[in-house]
Simulated assay, not measured.
Amino acid sequence: MGQVTVRVGGYSHPVSCEDGQEAHLVSLAAEVDRRIHSVRSMGGQFGESRLLLLAALLLADEVHDLKIEVAQARAGMPGQSAPDPRLAHRLTQVAERIERIAAGLEQGG
């Protein structure tokens, strides 16, 4: 089992992951950190849990939009380009990986 320390919102967090997934996890944490900086740039004072919640909601909104696009592409809706099965498969893998990481974080890393 691999372990990395990621920096999100100015704090370091040790996180376990599957061997070989360390770089990917660091990349995911960087994306979360970018969202946190985005929320902070909106102004206002947020506690850390609120900041993480808002960043998670931004990411969840993006995943939701992508799922709708994939569903529309699979359904062959007018105005949509032909679905790329590799993209749909990759999005499914990414969503599953995010869910595994979230479950791991809920269990204490």
Rank of each mutant, 00 (worst) to 15 (best):
H13Q: 07
P83T: 07
L66M: 12
P85Y: 07
E22V: 00
G44V: 03
G47C: 01
V94F: 06
M42L: 14
A23E: 11
V26P: 07
R100F: 01
G109Q: 14
F46H: 15
R35H: 10
D61V: 02
G108F: 05
V70S: 10
E106T: 14
V15G: 01
L105C: 11
A73M: 05
A75F: 00
D61L: 08
Q45H: 13
E22H: 04
M1G: 10
E62N: 10
L66H: 09
R50C: 12
A71D: 06
S81E: 12
L87W: 09
M1Q: 04
I101T: 09
V8Q: 01
Q3Y: 00
A56T: 06
L91E: 06
V70W: 03
Q21Y: 09
R7M: 09
P78Y: 04
A30Y: 01
V6P: 06
A75L: 08
R35W: 02
S41A: 13
M42K: 11
Q107K: 14
E18F: 05
G9S: 01
S12P: 11
H89C: 12
R74Y: 00
V94L: 15
T92I: 03
L91M: 09
V6Q: 01
V39G: 04
E48Q: 13
L87M: 09
A103M: 03
E99L: 10
E22S: 05
I98R: 06
R90G: 12
R40T: 01
R90I: 13
